[in-house]
Design a protein around this nucleic acid. Structure first.
Lengths: 183, 183
DNA sequence: GCGATCATGTAACCGGTTACATGATTTC
DNA sequence: GAAATCATGTAACCGGTTACATGATCGC
C-alpha cells in the first residue's frame, strides 16, 4: 500500500524520499502514517520494477535522489485505484485510493464509489441487526454499556461514510459536508 | 493487541479458541478482525505467561481447550486498559480498550476518555488549519477535489469521535447517539 | 558555530495474514 | 451419508515499525 501511495505522490512532479514522506503526512497523514524504514525500500522496489525513475541531483556536497512515476507506473497506479472492491480492504486503503481518484475518469470512479457505498450499506444493515438484538429487552442498557457503545460508534461511522460517498459521487461542494457551527 | 482482546473475552466465562474468535467477531468485529493464525499462538503465549488457565474437556472423541483469565491476567488487562493515551495508538486500539471499559472504575475511565477527547480536539484543530489553507482561494475547489475530500472525511470522523466521547463520558443513553430517521 | 531539519539508508524485530493440514461433530 | 461447522494448530510470508548509523545544509 505504501508503495502505491508513494507512487501517487510523484505522478506530476519529481520528489525525494524525504519530500514524499512529508507529502504523505500532509495529504493522507490523517489516516495513514509512513516511516522511512518502509518508504525507502518501497521506492527502491518500484524503481527496480520500472514504476519509478530515479535521477540523482548534486546539492552541494551531497546527492539528492528524485523519484518520478513512469508511464507503466502511472498505469499500475490506475489499476490499483480501479481494482474492484473487496471486503478485506481496510477503510484506510479505501481512503488512500480515493485520495487519487482525480486521476480516474468520472465513470470509473463513480462506479467504484458505488461499490464502496453498497458495501457500507450492507455493513450498516448488519450493525442494525446486532443493535436490534441488544436493544430489544429495553432497560438492560446498563450492563454492556461500553460493549454497546462501540457498536453505536460503528453505526455512526458507517452512516457518515455513506453520507460522504453520496456527497462526493455527486461532486457536491466539500465544505457543505461538515457542520461548521459549534466549537 | 489481539492477546489482550482475547483475554478480555474470557474474564467471566471459560471459552475455547474457536468461541473466542466468534466472540471477537460479534463484539469488536466492527473494527477488528482476528485470524486463527494469530489467535492460537496468542492464547498459548498468555497461558505461558500465567494470564490464562487452560483446562481440557473431553467432548466425544475429541478434547476441547477452555481458556479463562487468571487474577494476574485480569490485572494485566486492567493495566492495558488504563495505560495513558499515546499518539501512536490507533483508533481501533482505542475502541478495543473502550469495549472493556465496564471493567474499570468510573473515575479511571472518565479520566482516560478525557485524554482521548483532548487529543481528538487537537487533531480537529490541526485538520481545520489545513482546511483553512486550502479553502482560502475560494473557487479552487475543483482541482484537488478528492484530495480535499479525504480531509473532510477526517474532519467529520473526528467530530463524530468527539461527540461520542462526550456522550459516553456522560453515560447518556446510547440510542440517542445516532440518527434513526432516514434509510 | 549551533541547533533544526534535511537526507538516506539498514537490521532486527513484530504483529499479523494466508495457506495448509487434520479430523470430529452436528444437522439435514 | 453429505455438508456445514466445529476445533486446533503450524509454516511461510509480509507489510510494516523501531532503533540505529551517518552526515550535510540552512537559518540564526
Amino acid at each position: 500500500m505504501l508503495d502505491y501511495i508513494a507512487l501517487g505522490m510523484v505522478l506530476h512532479e519529481a520528489k525525494t524520499g524525504y519530500d514524499i514522506k512529508k507529502e504523505i503526512m500532509m495529504g493522507v497523514g490523517n489516516f495513514y502514517k509512513a516511516s522511512y524504514g518502509s518508504l525507502y525500500p518501497a521506492l527502491k522496489k518500484f524503481t527496480d520494477k520500472g514504476y519509478l525513475t530515479m535521477v540523482e541531483k548534486p546539492h552541494g556536497k551531497r546527492i539528492k535522489k528524485f523519484y518520478l512515476a513512469t508511464e507503466p507506473g502511472r498505469a499500475a497506479l490506475l489499476e490499483w485505484l480501479s481494482s474492484p472492491f473487496d471486503e478485506s480492504l481496510s477503510a484506510e486503503s479505501l481512503l488512500a485510493r480515493i485520495y487519487f481518484f482525480g486521476e480516474l475518469p468520472k465513470a470509473t470512479r463513480d462506479n467504484l464509489i458505488g461499490e464502496y457505498e453498497a458495501y457500507s450499506q450492507q455493513v450498516l444493515g448488519q450493525l442494525k441487526e446486532i443493535e436490534k438484538k441488544f436493544a430489544e429487552p429495553g432497560p438492560a442498557d446498563d450492563r454492556f454499556y461500553f460493549e454497546l457503545a462501540t457498536l453505536y460508534y460503528g453505526l455512526a461511522s458507517t452512516q457518515t461514510a455513506l453520507r460522504w460517498f453520496k456527497h462526493i459521487k455527486e461532486g457536491k461542494p466539500l465544505r457543505a459536508f461538515i457542520q461548521h457551527d459549534n466549537n
